[in-house]
Amino acid sequence: MMFWVRKIHKWASLLIGLQLFIWVFSGLVFNVIDHKKARGNAYRQAPTVSEHLIAEKDLLPVETILKAYPETIELTQTKLLEKPYYLLTQEQGLYRHFTNRFLLVNAITGELTKVDEKLALNIAKASYIGPGDATSTNLFITNIPDYPKQKNPTWQINFNDDLETSVYIEQGSGRIVGHSNSDKRFAGFFFMLHFMDYGDEGSFNNIQIMLFAFVTLWLALSGLIWTIHMLRNGKYRLKTSR
């Protein structure tokens, strides 16, 4: 039996040795990095809370809005640049990052609003306290950089600060998806390595890691049996027992 244990151990180590090293190394990186920095929010500020521009009861009545947009699942309130809006969910995903479809209606004027480049830029700037200036704006429909799980079209606003901050604004709702910067991307790189997520899907359920995990199980269990065997044969000394 020990013959097979050793054989399994050697061949498994040949297959996954390098990845095992990467796993342990990236795992150690997660242990030592500053998790606060890795969130990417170094230059993020909470939206300024001001007095209501207008009392809530004086906004356009929700009944009128819902009559105008009858295909609505839920009506909620949101604020963009301190102005009140109604957010009408037209298609609801299980989570915010799943596919959702929204309409944004100005709660004072009733105007249907689109989060265009200019509005997205201003929302991003209002959330930003870094030293940089916004240099470029891109709209991503799918494969949103830094947010692989986000399934909704998203604006990316790039700032030219020391951390290369990017701010992401969801096109449908005006929601700030998040801030990202070089610290977060550094951690993200090691997550990619640890999860073998080479397609940047933001997932650790990919086929390559399943295969490697399967072989790793054999490596670890054969190593365990081998170690126990050697312990029982007198503390590693009788290693050439055969």
């Binding site: 796993w23 650790f204 995990a213 399967f214």
Partner: peptide
């Protein structure tokens, strides 16, 4: 690590 990791990826 191997057992828990395998559970999480499978």
């Amino acid at each position: 690590w191997s057992v828990t990791g395998a559970y999480m990826v499978f």
